[in-house]
């Protein structure tokens, strides 16, 4: 008896005690509710978001009275009318949409080889290097990175100094649309690589070998096998990059020189510069709507990609 007791490890006894306590706090017949309990934080979060959206929706129907700087008591569609008719908002919305699509395409094109090499290289050193190079920017943050580009691409920056060495006069590389797109692509690349890598990992190397033995050179292997099989990764990465760049604030603000605003900058102006919370809310809601529409369109056309957590579209 005594031997048996000492053979019963202390850790097991601790676990028994914990289970007993858990049994009192959360009796067995509550068990069915456990999964819902786990969902509670998520529901709370979504609930708050919905609440916020509801308040924004309310504000979006009220106009600003510049005599008192209060929103009107009565509701109207004036803000929505302004949002879709004023050339400023149309220009900015068009710029954001076109820009985010260009950024998405470029980012995917550039990120794919990076992700591919990272996943496939037999060299552990190279893989580590690529991983570190990928995560480093995450620690640095968007604003500091944009600031880095200000230093590198400025009139007296490294690039222009290098041009100077070969006799090219300094030129303005910053504060224009390409500079904003460039900054966004650079900012989005780690996200895209991170979304692409699992999709590529999921393609067995054997499959590429098989394509080779069946007569496909690497171009055709890529085109007929890797690309279609990596589609979930492309969809996931594309969605993340598209939504992030569509709603980006800092890069257009910093690299655009003030004249390359995206929607988020216009929203900021309404909330913080002209104090027109109604119009700001309207623009924000329209952005949410357009973004959701785009995402929905992609889901319908291509499926949810890696965002569907491996569920295959039937």
């Amino acid at each position: 008896m005594k031997a048996a007791r000492t053979a019963y490890p202390i850790r097991w006894r601790v676990m028994d005690a914990l289970e007993a306590v858990a049994g009192i706090l959360w009796p067995r017949f509550f068990r069915a509710g456990t999964p819902y309990l786990m969902l509670a934080p998520a529901i709370l979060l979504v609930g708050l978001l919905v609440l916020g959206l509801w308040q924004m929706a309310d504000a979006s129907f009220r106009t600003l009275d510049t005599n008192t700087f209060l929103l009107s008591e009565d509701y109207s569609l004036a803000n929505y009318k302004r949002a879709v008719t004023e050339s400023l908002f149309i220009t900015v919305a068009g710029r954001s949409l076109v820009g985010s699509i260009i950024v998405t395409v470029l980012t995917l094109v550039i990120s794919f080889p990076y992700a591919y090499v990272m996943v496939r290289t037999p060299s552990a050193t190279l893989r580590k290097f690529l991983l570190i190079a990928l995560f480093l920017p995450f620690f640095i943050g968007q604003v500091v990175r944009a600031y880095g580009w200000l230093i590198i691409l400025g009139n007296q920056g490294m690039v222009n100094e290098a041009f100077g060495l070969i006799g090219i006069a300094p030129m303005r590389l910053l504060y224009n649309y390409p500079a904003v797109l460039f900054g966004l692509v650079q900012y989005m690349m780690p996200f895209a690589v991170l979304m692409l890598a699992p999709a590529l990992t999921a393609i067995p190397e054997e499959i590429e070998a098989a394509a080779g033995s069946l007569g496909a050179d690497w171009v055709r292997t890529f085109r007929h096998v890797v690309l279609p099989m990596a589609r979930p990764g492309f969809v996931g990465a594309g969605l993340v990059v598209l939504t992030l760049s569509l709603t980006d604030f800092a890069i257009p603000a910093m690299l655009g020189g003030g004249s390359q605003d995206f929607i988020a900058n216009a929203i900021y102006d309404q909330f913080f510069r002209t104090s027109d919370q109604g119009l700001g809310a309207t623009l924000a809601l329209l952005l949410v709507a357009v973004g959701s529409l785009l995402v929905g369109l992609v889901f319908t056309l291509f499926g949810a990609g890696t965002l569907a957590m491996g569920r295959v579209k039937a």
Binding site: L64, T66, N67, E86, S87, L88, T91, V92, R95, G258, S259, Q260, D261, A266, D269, R273, T274, S275, D276
Partner: peptide
């Protein structure tokens, strides 16, 4: 009273 309008007017010209 007019700042908001002036701002958007200026923005509209500059962002165009």
């Amino acid at each position: 009273e007019n700042e908001s309008e002036w701002f958007s007017k200026f923005k509209a010209i500059m962002q165009g």
